[in-house]
Structure formats: C-alpha cells, structure tokens
C-alpha cells in the first residue's frame, strides 16, 4: 500500500519586515524553480485526471480503435454492476479490518519505544524496517509463511498440535474471509512502521514538564496516558486515520499478488476490478467511470473525516 506523506503546512511564519524596508519588486524567478515539478505534475496528474473524466463518457478502448461519445452509459453500467459493488464492499471490509490495528498498534509501539531506554534504537528499527521492503518481497515472504504444505505457519501449528497435518489450512486463498485476513495481517506488518514513526515523533514533542507536574500531583501512569498523552496526540491521530483510510481504500498491490481476488472474488477489491476492466478488458472508458466512482467515495469519506476531527478540536 502506498502512503502519501502530507506536505508540511507552508511556513506561515514569514518574517515580519520592519515597515521602513522597501517593498520587494515582484519577481518571477521563483517560477522557474517550481516549473519542472509543475510541468510533471500537470502532465502526469492533472491532465490524466481530466482526460479520465472525459474518457468515462466515451467507449475509449485500449486497442486504439476510434472512440465515440456514449454519454452516461458507462456511469449507468457502473452503478448497476454487481461485481463493482462487490469489489467496493470488499474494499470497505479491508479498510474496516486494517485501519484499527494499524492505528492502535502504532500507538502501542510508539509508547513502548518512547519508554525503552537501551533497546530504543533496536525497536525503532525493527518496527520500521518492514516498511522499506518493496511489496513484491513482502508478499513473497508472507506467501511462504502461509503456504499450506510446508509453510512456516502451518508447520508450527502442527507442531503445537493445533492443526491436523492431513488437513492443512489454506490461508491466502481460504474461504470466509481467511484470504482477506491473511492480507490484513501482511499489510499491518508491512505498513504499521510508518504510523509508528508519526506517533513517535509526536510523542517526543510533548513537554516532559507536563508529566512531571502531573506526577507531583499523584497521577498514575494510566491517568497520564488517558488524560495527557492521548489527548495531546489527537492531531496526529486525526492525520494518521485520514492517511490510513485513504491508503486502505486504495488497496491493490498485496491483494493482487497474494489472492488475485480469490477465492471466488471474495477478496477482489475496487482497484483490482478497475484494472481488470481497463487492462484485461481493454475498456478504458468504463474503467475511468469506475475510477471516478472510487475517487468520489474516497473524497466524501476524507471530507467527512476532516470535518469530524476539526469540529472536535474546536
């Protein structure tokens, strides 16, 4: 899963100039510095975004045949497509399962590392290390672990007598949510490090004197956690949840590599279906409409979330 780091708020602390200083002449030099980025951004993000919207009203095909305007056909089809809805439900399910552990475990790990004196560097590395591993490697490691015959997990379950060797559990293609949970666990292991780092950074900005003062007043560690640490982490939590929701809703890589949507489409997620429609079925027009449906849903959820948290804060 990819996580887009938010750019830090623009440095608002512009220095106030003494009133006597002459007003600086307007200069366009700065524009040249941002031009390379802006050009790439426009070419590879803004332009395709609008092009996609246009395509969603055409029967544009990957085969290069001339496209014609089909109006709302693709959109109507998308809203009536059972498979698309199924994929959206699966995406929501994945988000629902993966977000809570990715937030809670990140806090727990951060608290742990923040307290650890000697082993701090090791734990920091251990929790963050999986995050730098590419998805292809992560999925390969976990598919070996989950392998029904001779996989690490089943091997130990059999050693402990929890599993019958003649009926090994099929994990990442297992029915009834087994496949989904296999990917959730893989994802948590892989990406929790990023949230952990955000929390750790936030924890280190809390003024130690607050704890000192409260412990003089006789506050226990639990009370400090509930009434000082967590409330002061609120802003970070809001950001982590938003980033995490977006990242989870965009799930594709791990799911595609590990389950391929199986078993029987139980773990087919939205982007996977868009991929199938666009690249296997060559229907760029229809895939564009599907992408916009997902885009709008993510947008609504993000706005809703932002509202919720900013209201809480004020």
């Amino acid at each position: 899963m990819t996580v887009k780091t938010a750019t830090p708020a623009a440095a608002s602390a512009a220095m106030t100039r003494p009133p006597s200083a002459p007003r600086k002449k307007k200069s366009w030099t700065g524009l040249w510095f941002v031009l390379p980025f802006v050009a790439f951004y426009a070419l590879f993000l803004i332009w395709p975004t609008f092009l996609g919207l246009y395509y969603s009203f055409t029967d544009k095909s990957l085969t290069g045949r001339p496209a014609s305007w089909v109006g709302l056909d693709n959109w109507v089809e998308a809203f009536g497509d059972e498979r698309a809805w199924n994929a959206l439900v699966n995406t929501a399910e994945f988000t629902l399962y993966s977000t809570p552990p990715l937030v809670v475990l990140a806090i727990v790990f951060a608290l742990l590392v923040n307290r650890a004196r000697k082993l701090g560097w090791f734990l920091r590395m251990a929790f963050f290390a999986p995050f730098v591993v590419p998805v292809s490697v992560v999925t390969m490691i976990w598919m070996w672990i989950y392998q029904p015959e001779g996989g690490l997990l089943n091997h130990y379950l059999q050693l402990l007598g929890l599993q019958d060797a003649s009926a090994p559990t099929v994990w990442y293609q297992g029915e009834n949510g087994m496949a989904m949970w296999s990917v959730v666990i893989t994802t948590v292991w892989w990406t929790v490090g990023f949230n952990f780092l955000l929390y750790l950074a936030a924890l280190q900005t809390i003024d130690p004197s607050v704890y000192e003062a409260s412990s003089i007043d006789g506050a226990s560690w639990w009370r400090q956690l509930w009434h000082i640490t967590l409330p002061l982490l609120n802003r970070t939590t809001a950001m982590v949840i938003v980033l995490q929701l977006i990242a989870s809703l965009r799930i594709f890589d791990q799911m595609y590599i590990m389950t391929g949507g199986g078993p029987n489409r139980e773990s087919e997620v939205a982007i996977h279906y868009i991929y199938i429609a666009g690249f296997e079925g060559y229907r760029i027009g229809y895939a564009s409409a599907l992408s916009y449906v997902l885009f709008i849903l993510i947008l609504i959820i993000s706005i809703f979330q932002f509202r919720l948290f900013s209201r809480k804060e004020s």
Binding site: V170, Q173, E175, G260, G261, G262, P263, N264, R265
Partner: peptide, 11 residues
Amino acid sequence: SIFLQVYSLAM
C-alpha cells in the same frame, strides 16, 4: 479461480 476451489474441495 473456480477450479482452484474445486481442487481445494470448497466447491
């Protein structure tokens, strides 16, 4: 993906 289910005796 259907035959995978047949082999695993799930279908």
